[in-house]
Amino acid sequence: MPDRQRADARRNYARILAVAEEEVAAHGAGASLEQIARVTGVGSATVRRHFPTRRALLEAVSHKRIEALCVRAQELTGKGDSRSALLEWLSDVVAYCVSARGLAAALVYEGAESDSIHENTCSAMMEEAGSPLLRRAVQDGAVATGITVADLITLAVGIVLATEHHPDPAAGADRLFRLAVAGLSPQS
């Protein structure tokens, strides 16, 4: 019987995640956990057992996109101009967050401690992926020292959240991102 329960739990997790992906796509980070439970055909306690917090749910829903952004960072690392590579990756982060409702909320940093990034799996993955790009750009003098990947992700998330209700969120986010880029330049 315990093996069957584990198999049932795995099936429930997969079903809950599939429904959660649809609900987050339709309703964003505020998707109702109760609605997810209803559509899945399980109790809300089952949903909460698999996803004890909204952040845990958003991270699970966003995991594939985060992995794709991490692969993109690896592809860009060491290629071409270091500043262009970093900015191309950040532009991809902004575009992905605009297109995938809930992704920006999954990347939000909480807490003031510098170690708080490690409480958020998605943010930790992005920190690791973006660090080589940022390090190279700083070493080349193409980006000011003192900037962290956490700063850049926070900036991207802020831009996306600030433009999510605009008539054209992608254009608004792209415009704000381009305005912010000027602030990344080293002071001459």
Rank of each mutant, 00 (worst) to 15 (best):
G41F: 13
E110F: 11
G80T: 07
E128L: 13
L134T: 10
L134Y: 01
R6G: 00
G78S: 03
G141D: 06
E22N: 13
A100D: 15
R15P: 00
G41I: 14
E113F: 05
E75I: 10
I147G: 06
K64L: 12
G172S: 09
Y96M: 13
G41V: 15
G78C: 04
V39C: 06
S32Q: 01
I16C: 03
M126K: 00
N12E: 15
A156Q: 11
P52S: 00
G172I: 14
Q139P: 06
G102T: 10
V19N: 09
Q139W: 05
G43K: 00
R4Q: 07
L179S: 08
A112R: 08
A106V: 13
G102Y: 10
F177Y: 14
I147D: 10
M126Q: 04
A162S: 15
V47G: 00
H166A: 05
R136S: 06
A137G: 05
L58G: 05
L86D: 11
C122I: 12
N120G: 11
A112V: 13
Y96Q: 14
E127I: 02
L57Q: 04
T163F: 08
Q74P: 07
V71H: 07
S82W: 01
H165V: 06
A105P: 07
N12D: 14
D174V: 06
R49F: 00
D168P: 04
P2Q: 14
T53I: 03
E21Q: 10
A162W: 06
A9T: 00
S185M: 14
V61H: 10
R55E: 03
I66T: 15
A100K: 04
Q139T: 05
D151W: 10
V98T: 11
A137R: 02
G183K: 10
G141R: 03
T163V: 12
A137Y: 09
R101V: 08
A7E: 13
